[in-house]
Amino acid sequence: MLVQAVVLHSRPYRENSQLVDLLSDQAGLIRALFRGKPASPGLTPFVLYECKLAAGYSDLYFVHRAEPLKVFPQLVGRELYLALYLNELTIKLIKNLADGQFLQGIYLKVLTRLAQSSERYQQEALLRHYELILIEELGVKPDFNQTQNGETILDNQFYCLDFDNGWLKSQPTEANSVPGRIVKLIDAADFSDPDTLKYAKRLMRSWLDHLLGQQPLFTRELFKRIKT
């Protein structure tokens, strides 16, 4: 199988091999074994490769050949941490290999824009957009146009998200209540209004925590520690 794949993570395996998590254009997230040359850097995260893959054991593939197609502008500092967050989130959320099949395009777009922009508002908007697409790709995003009872979401009404069943009418005073107008803007990934971004951050954080279960996100811990 010939795929275009970006490396999300690599860890050394024995002396010259690596276990890599690849986000591919055809098969979503792939776990593969790559045997490199001695002292070569091997497959590197944030590089898009053309890979020739062969089926291995169970879900594990073997990378027979890998040619770099595109190297993203070098990610450093805060932008690197943001990109590592994308990778950790993707690997921890995608369990089923069929999921993530259409994710590569948006991942590459977000990565390119992260490397180009150091404007924090823009970066946060990019992360929220990616999180939303990732959840959609997992097939667990409810309808943002109507409540779980089939009622249309209204601009001036407040709603709470029941992660497993969809939106429910709520009171403005309830924790995690979101105005209907904002629900629609989040659905459209329109974060031009700072209020939308603020609500989206709070919503996505609790939604992702729900989806991750007991798995912590270590990149979040790093962000807290560096106090950026």
Partner: peptide, 15 residues
């Protein structure tokens, strides 16, 4: 000079 090395360097430089 790896992704992990860069992440570690940044963390140390911040504190």
């Amino acid at each position: 000079a790896s992704v992990e090395g860069e992440a570690t360097s940044y963390f140390i430089s911040q504190f």
